[in-house]
Amino acid sequence: MTLKPDDEVSIVACPDGPLLVRGDVPILTPDGEPLPRRRRTVALCRCGKSTIKPYCDGTHKTIGFRTEPELPA
Protein backbone atom coordinates (compact mmCIF):
# COMPACT_ATOMS: atom_id res chain seq x y z
CA MET A 1 0.00 0.00 0.00
CA THR A 2 1.24 3.44 -0.85
CA LEU A 3 -1.33 5.39 1.15
CA LYS A 4 0.23 8.11 3.24
CA PRO A 5 -1.19 8.56 6.73
CA ASP A 6 -2.53 12.01 5.93
CA ASP A 7 -4.28 11.08 2.68
CA GLU A 8 -7.88 12.22 3.08
CA VAL A 9 -9.17 10.97 -0.26
CA SER A 10 -7.79 8.10 -2.30
CA ILE A 11 -8.89 6.57 -5.57
CA VAL A 12 -7.81 3.01 -6.35
CA ALA A 13 -7.87 2.22 -10.07
CA CYS A 14 -8.90 -1.43 -9.88
CA PRO A 15 -7.49 -3.45 -12.79
CA ASP A 16 -10.34 -4.47 -15.15
CA GLY A 17 -12.75 -2.89 -12.69
CA PRO A 18 -14.08 0.30 -11.13
CA LEU A 19 -12.49 3.28 -9.42
CA LEU A 20 -12.62 2.71 -5.69
CA VAL A 21 -13.08 6.00 -3.84
CA ARG A 22 -12.26 6.28 -0.14
CA GLY A 23 -12.65 9.46 1.84
CA ASP A 24 -15.01 12.35 2.08
CA VAL A 25 -15.31 13.68 -1.46
CA PRO A 26 -18.54 15.08 -2.89
CA ILE A 27 -20.00 13.21 -5.87
CA LEU A 28 -22.19 15.63 -7.81
CA THR A 29 -24.43 15.95 -10.83
CA PRO A 30 -23.32 18.50 -13.47
CA ASP A 31 -25.62 20.96 -11.70
CA GLY A 32 -23.80 20.51 -8.45
CA GLU A 33 -26.51 18.44 -6.79
CA PRO A 34 -25.10 15.74 -4.53
CA LEU A 35 -25.68 12.18 -5.73
CA PRO A 36 -26.87 9.64 -3.15
CA ARG A 37 -23.89 8.35 -1.19
CA ARG A 38 -24.93 5.26 0.70
CA ARG A 39 -21.55 4.07 1.96
CA ARG A 40 -18.21 5.41 3.02
CA THR A 41 -16.25 3.70 0.25
CA VAL A 42 -17.83 3.70 -3.21
CA ALA A 43 -16.94 2.14 -6.56
CA LEU A 44 -17.38 4.33 -9.64
CA CYS A 45 -18.23 2.64 -12.95
CA ARG A 46 -15.38 2.61 -15.43
CA CYS A 47 -16.72 0.21 -18.08
CA GLY A 48 -19.75 2.40 -18.90
CA LYS A 49 -22.26 -0.45 -18.64
CA SER A 50 -23.37 -0.24 -15.02
CA THR A 51 -27.13 -0.05 -14.46
CA ILE A 52 -26.61 2.16 -11.37
CA LYS A 53 -24.16 4.73 -12.76
CA PRO A 54 -22.12 6.50 -11.60
CA TYR A 55 -21.68 3.53 -9.25
CA CYS A 56 -20.37 0.11 -10.24
CA ASP A 57 -22.73 -2.90 -10.28
CA GLY A 58 -20.19 -5.55 -11.28
CA THR A 59 -21.29 -5.62 -14.94
CA HIS A 60 -17.69 -5.09 -16.11
CA LYS A 61 -17.06 -8.74 -15.27
CA THR A 62 -19.77 -10.01 -17.57
CA ILE A 63 -18.65 -8.02 -20.61
CA GLY A 64 -14.93 -8.77 -20.47
CA PHE A 65 -14.01 -5.17 -19.72
CA ARG A 66 -10.24 -4.66 -19.64
CA THR A 67 -8.29 -1.64 -18.48
CA GLU A 68 -5.00 -0.68 -20.08
CA PRO A 69 -2.02 -2.60 -18.81
CA GLU A 70 -0.81 -1.06 -15.57
CA LEU A 71 2.47 0.77 -15.71
CA PRO A 72 5.25 -1.01 -13.83
CA ALA A 73 5.38 0.22 -10.24
Binding site: V12, C14, G17, P18, L20, R38, R39, T41, V42, A43, I52, Y55, C56, D57, G58
Partner: peptide, 8 residues
Protein backbone atom coordinates in the same frame (compact mmCIF):
# COMPACT_ATOMS: atom_id res chain seq x y z
CA UNK B 1 -23.97 -1.54 -5.09
CA UNK B 2 -22.34 -2.75 -1.86
CA UNK B 3 -20.85 -5.95 -3.18
CA UNK B 4 -19.41 -4.27 -6.26
CA UNK B 5 -17.36 -2.33 -3.69
CA UNK B 6 -16.77 -5.25 -1.35
CA UNK B 7 -15.47 -7.58 -4.03
CA UNK B 8 -12.67 -5.19 -4.89
Amino acid sequence: EADAVHEQ
